[in-house]
C-alpha cells in the first residue's frame, strides 16, 4: 500500500535509505567509478524514489525497484558524460600488475579481476556486477537491468567467458 501522508512517505523513505542506501551508492559507483559523483547521484536517486513512491506496485522488491532506478540514473549520467566531456578512462590492455610479492598477491589478483570486469562491454559488466557484486538473483538482475531473464543469463555466461579469455590464466588461482 502506498503511504498517504507526507509523514508516512518521509518515514518510508528513511527506512528505504537505511536499508538500501549502501546498495545504491555502491551500484552507482560501479557504473561511474567516481565516488563523489556516486554520492551526489545516490541522493538524487532517493529523491526520485520519494517522488515515485506511489508508483511502486509490489511487482518487485523495494530493493530491485530502487536499484533499477539507480542503474537508470547512472546510465543516464554516463551517457551525458560521454557527450559532455571525454570518454571515461579506459583500462589499457595488459596494464602492468603491481609487483608480485607474496603479501600483495591477492590484492593484485583482485585488482586484475576488477580491471578485467571493468574492461567488459557494458551489458556484461553490468550483469557481473549485479549478480556477483550485489548478489541479486537472475530475475532481480534482469529487472534492474531492464532485460529479460534469458538475456541476463546469456550476458552472465558470456561475461564469464570473456573474463576467462581475457584473464587468460593470468590469475594465479593456486596461490590463493
Amino acid at each position: 500500500m502506498s503511504p498517504q501522508s507526507q509523514e508516512e512517505r518521509v518515514s518510508l523513505l528513511q527506512e528505504l535509505m537505511r536499508a538500501f542506501g549502501h546498495d545504491v551508492i555502491r551500484l552507482i559507483d560501479h557504473y561511474l567509478h567516481d565516488r563523489h559523483a556516486a554520492e551526489d547521484l545516490s541522493q538524487d536517486v532517493f529523491l526520485k524514489v520519494y517522488d515515485h513512491l506511489d508508483d511502486f506496485r509490489n511487482e518487485s522488491s523495494y530493493k530491485t525497484w530502487i536499484l533499477a532506478i539507480a542503474a537508470n540514473a547512472a546510465k543516464d549520467y554516463l551517457r551525458a558524460a560521454a557527450r559532455r566531456v571525454t570518454p571515461m578512462e579506459t583500462i589499457p590492455e595488459g596494464a602492468p600488475l603491481p609487483a608480485v610479492e607474496s603479501a600483495v598477491v591477492e590484492r593484485a589478483q583482485r585488482d586484475q579481476l576488477w580491471r578485467a570486469v571493468d574492461a567488459l562491454p557494458g551489458v556484461y559488466r553490468e550483469a557481473i556486477w549485479l549478480f556477483y557484486g550485489h548478489e541479486l538473483s537472475i530475475e532481480e538482475a534482469a529487472r534492474v537491468a531492464k532485460a529479460s531473464v534469458g538475456a541476463m543469463k546469456t550476458r552472465l555466461h558470456r561475461g564469464r567467458a570473456m573474463l576467462r579469455e581475457g584473464l587468460g590464466g593470468g590469475l594465479d588461482y593456486e596461490s590463493r
Binding site: Q14, M17, H22, R26, D29, G133, R176
Partner: peptide, 20 residues
C-alpha cells in the same frame, strides 16, 4: 569463487547518515 569476492568489495562506500 573469485567473482564472489566482488560482493565484499567497496564495503567502505556507504550511504551515510549525513547523505540521508
Amino acid at each position: 569463487a573469485f567473482l564472489r569476492t566482488l560482493a565484499r568489495e567497496k564495503r567502505d562506500l556507504t550511504f551515510t547518515d549525513e547523505m540521508q
